[in-house]
Amino acid sequence: MGTAVTLVKDSPPGTAPARLGAPGAVRRRRRGENLAGYLFMSPWIAGFLLLTAGPMAASLYFAFTDYNLFDAPRWIGLDNFTALFDDPRWQKSVEVTAKYVVIGTPLKLLLALGVALLLAQSRRGQAFYRAAFYAPSLIGASVSVGFVWRALFSDGAVVDRTQSFLGLGSGGWVGDPGRVLYSLVALTVWQFGAPMVIFLAGLKQVPRELYEAAEVDGAGPLRRFWSITLPMLSPVLFFNVLLETIHSFQIFGSAYVVSNTTCGPADATLVYTCYLYQKGFKESQMGFASAMAWMLLLAVALVTAVLFWSQKRWVHYEEDVR
């Protein structure tokens, strides 16, 4: 998603990416070597064409058709796209997804950054803590965790009882249209390990002499964080924001499992992909579902573009600081 460019910018001259770009280097190679190269790549190329490019092209075509899986697709132009905007459930799914992204992503990144800051300091058992905090991300995407979550947040289950014990009201989250989405937010926040590891790597990159110089000048911990850590970390932060936002838009598994495959109650967990799935595979409206998929791609591309545009204002690369 263009992040590779950002990373190249970071790398000092003389590292691998820079050398690959050297003019003439590729051209001088013999044709036989090229062929061998493509042969080695062929499993990937075949996979890309058959499993990614092909289906994408097909779905682009279906997006402009009325297609029920059984009869031949019928070209209807932009009808699917206009129907989207007239569909209250589509609007609801956009609303639910936006809410999930806007609330879940910042919370997750804040937690990841906070824990990364704590773990960046050397202390005994450091490796254990890192592994322990990272573990949820490893198992988080699985269906079984969805089931555990459903069990935790049901009426009369652990969360409910703890809540009543603390006098915070009662009733499960899973059955309450007003709260069930927050159980999904909690699930994604709990999986903060992946961005945390990236933050940790970023923190290691910050030159120690900057802190030492600041300390000599009498800067306190807060000041050092705002003036050194955050600016030096901003490329990594940007990378994490981008990645997590894109991931969040694609939420499916947890919503599908926690809602017991209904994306309810009262459409409260009707995230975008869940509705797409219902339209395509339950209601046999593949054309409509394809149009939805392309709208999602457009939306994600738009958000990505906005983020890239905004990075001029808040992302500092090393050369700017020096």
């Binding site: 009426d155 009733g171 059955g175 309450d176 249209p177 017991n260 309810g264 109650p265 009262a266």
Partner: peptide
């Protein structure tokens, strides 16, 4: 109350 019905599920 429909909320109650949801809570009672399954």
């Amino acid at each position: 109350d429909p909320k109650r019905v949801e809570q009672d599920k399954p």
